[in-house]
Design a protein around this nucleic acid. Structure first.
Length: 441
RNA sequence: GACCCGUUCGUCUAUCGGUUAGGACUCCAGAUUUUCAUUCUGGCAAGAAGGGUUCGACUCCCUUACGGGUCGCCA
C-alpha cells in the first residue's frame, strides 16, 4: 500500500508558518516513503474564502518547494480537489448515514448521533488517547449538515480522506479532539480510518499562540526579507522535530532522508526569529558565488542601486557577512555609488584620533602615485608600505581608511574594498573625509 | 468550568533507569584576520514541585502547579 498524505488548508487568510509546517511534514512523510502528496482546498465556508488567500497558499507552497502530486493544477484521479465542487459526492455519503439511521434533524440541520462509548485512538505522535463519549455533555452530537444544505468540516474532511485514499493524516494538535469524532464518522460510513499524527503548535516567543498577525507568521513575508526557501523549510522543520543528531543544517534532500514521525516532539515550540536568520545565513554561505550574486542582484536592483560590471566581486565580498539577502543593499551601497553616507559616530571616532588626519593625507598621496592594485593582497601590501614609510603600524591605518571609504565601522575586507573601488575613488573619499575632519559641521 | 495533550539551559533540542545531563541559537571572553565581519576555542546557563516504584529515576506511576489545545449550523 502506498502512502498518501494531504495538506488541506482553507483559503481564509495567508499561509502561515504553522500551516506551512503541517504541509511540510506531510510532504516529507510522503517523499520519505515514496508516497503521494495531495493538496486539497477546503473551501466550504463561502463567506470567508478569498481568491487572494487561495493564491497565497499556492504561492507559498510553490516558494517553499512543496510540490503536490495531486490537486489543483496537478490533476489526479480523486478530483475535484476543491471541496466547493464536491457537493454531489457528499450527498451520496450523507445518504449512507441517513440509511444507517445515524443522523437526525435538529432545527433544519442534521446531527450525527455518536455511539456512546469510549473511543481510543493510537496517535502516531501522542500515543494512545481515549475520549469517553459516554459523557454526553462533553461530546454533544455534532452537526454534519447545515440547514442550508451545505456540509460542515468534520463531514467533508472525513469523506474526502476516505475518497482520496489518505493513509496518514498529519495535522496540528488543535485537531486532536476532533479525531475521535472523525473515527466515529468513519466507522458509521464503513470506511477504513487513516493513521493520525498530531503535531504540536508553534507559539510566539512569549508563549502565546502564534496567529496570522504575529512576527514571522506569514510565509509571504519571507521572500522579500531575503530568506532562502530551503532555509525556512530547514528552520520550521526544527520546530518540533529533531534528527536526533547534532546536525541542524539540512537541505530538502537531507530532510527527506532523515524525516520520521518518531522525531516529532509533543510539546509546542516557540518561534525564534534569531535562529531562523542564523539558519538562513548557513544556507546563504553554502551557495556558490554565482548563485549568491544572482540572488543578491535582485535585492540590489529592488533597492534602486546600480549594478556595475564588478557586481559579482562586490557580492562575494559580503556573501558570508549577511544573514538575509535583504541586508545586501545596505552592506554594499557605498561600493556601487559615488555617494558615501558618513556615520557621524564613525567620523567623530576618527576625529578623536590626533594622528588620523595626517595618515589619511599620506595615504591619499600614496594612492595617487601607486599603480592600480591587482588584488586585495596587493592592496594591503601597499598599505603596509605606506605605514612603514610613515613609521606607524598598519593597524593604525585600518580604521581611518575604512571610515573614509565606507563611512562606517563595519564592512568587507579593506583590501577588497580598495580593489573594488579603484585607487582614484579611494583617494577622493579620503579627501572627502579629511575635509569633514578639518571643517566639522 | 469540563475534557485532552504537554513540562530538560532564556529559546530549539539530545537522553529509549546508571552520563561530569550532550549539541545549537543568543550572550560573554580569548584566538585568528596587523581592519570589521566570517571562522575557531572557551565560558555562563536546565531536569516545574511533592510523593512513590527501584540497588539506582530527567527517564516509570500518582498528586499539585504551570503552559497549550478543544468544547460552533468556523475550519
Amino acid at each position: 500500500m502506498t502512502v498518501r498524505t494531504r495538506f488541506a488548508p482553507s483559503p481564509t487568510g495567508y499561509l502561515h508558518v504553522g500551516g506551512a509546517r503541517t504541509a511540510l511534514f506531510n510532504w516529507l512523510f510522503a517523499r520519505a516513503h515514496g508516497g503521494v502528496f495531495i493538496l486539497r482546498v477546503e473551501d466550504t465556508d463561502e463567506a470567508r474564502n478569498t481568491e487572494e488567500a487561495r493564491q497565497a497558499i499556492f504561492d507559498g507552497m510553490g516558494w517553499l518547494g512543496l510540490d503536490w502530486d495531486e490537486g489543483p493544477g496537478a490533476g489526479g484521479d480523486c478530483g475535484p480537489y476543491f471541496q466547493s465542487e464536491r457537493k454531489s459526492i457528499y450527498d451520496t455519503w450523507f445518504a449512507k448515514l441517513q440509511a444507517a439511521g445515524r443522523v437526525y434533524e435538529d432545527g433544519g440541520a442534521w446531527r450525527f448521533r455518536f455511539e456512546r462509548k469510549p473511543v481510543t485512538m493510537r496517535d502516531l505522535v501522542c500515543g494512545e488517547v481515549t475520549i469517553d463519549y459516554r459523557d454526553e455533555s462533553n461530546t454533544p452530537d455534532m452537526v454534519v449538515r447545515r440547514s442550508d444544505g451545505s456540509y460542515v468540516f468534520h463531514f467533508v474532511n472525513v469523506v474526502d480522506d476516505l475518497e482520496m485514499g489518505i493513509t496518514h493524516v498529519i495535522r496540528g494538535e488543535d485537531h486532536l479532539m476532533n479525531t475521535p469524532k472523525h473515527l466515529q464518522l468513519i466507522e458509521a460510513l464503513g470506511g477504513t480510518a487513516p493513521q493520525y499524527g498530531h503535531i504540536p503548535l508553534i507559539l510566539n516567543p512569549d508563549g502565546s499562540k502564534m496567529s496570522k498577525r504575529d512576527v514571522g507568521a506569514a510565509v509571504g513575508d519571507y521572500p522579500r526579507q531575503g530568506f532562502l526557501p530551503a532555509a525556512v523549510v530547514n528552520f520550521i522543520a526544527l520546530l518540533g522535530w529533531s534528527s536526533k543528531t547534532d546536525e541542524e543544517i539540512f537541505d530538502m534532500a537531507g530532510l527527506v532522508e532523515r524525516f520520521s514521525l518518531e522525531g516529532v516532539n509533543r510539546a509546542p515550540a516557540r518561534f525564534d526569529a534569531e535562529k531562523c536568520k542564523w539558519v538562513n545565513q548557513q544556507h546563504l554561505a553554502k551557495l556558490d558565488a554565482a548563485e549568491f550574486a544572482a540572488k543578491a542582484e535582485v535585492f540590489v536592483r529592488e533597492a534602486g542601486l546600480p549594478v556595475p560590471e564588478n557586481f559579482a566581486a562586490v557580492a562575494a565580498a559580503v556573501k558570508e557577512k549577511v544573514r538575509l539577502l535583504g541586508e545586501v543593499p545596505a552592506a554594499v551601497d557605498f561600493l556601487l555609488t559615488d555617494t558615501v553616507e558618513y556615520d557621524p559616530e564613525v567620523v567623530a571616532k576618527v576625529a578623536g584620533n590626533s594622528t588620523a588626519a595626517g595618515l589619511l593625507a599620506t595615504l591619499a598621496d600614496a594612492l595617487r602615485e601607486q599603480a592600480e592594485p591587482v588584488d586585495a593582497e596587493a592592496a594591503k601590501d601597499a598599505l603596509k608600505a605606506v605605514a612603514a614609510a610613515a613609521g606607524v603600524k598598519p593597524g593604525a591605518l585600518m580604521f581611518p581608511l575604512r571610515a573614509a571609504l565606507s563611512g562606517r565601522a563595519h564592512g568587507p575586507d579593506l583590501g577588497e574594498m580598495i580593489v573594488l573601488l579603484g585607487k582614484d575613488r579611494c583617494a577622493a573619499r579620503i579627501q572627502c573625509l579629511s575635509e569633514k575632519l578639518t571643517a566639522p559641521a
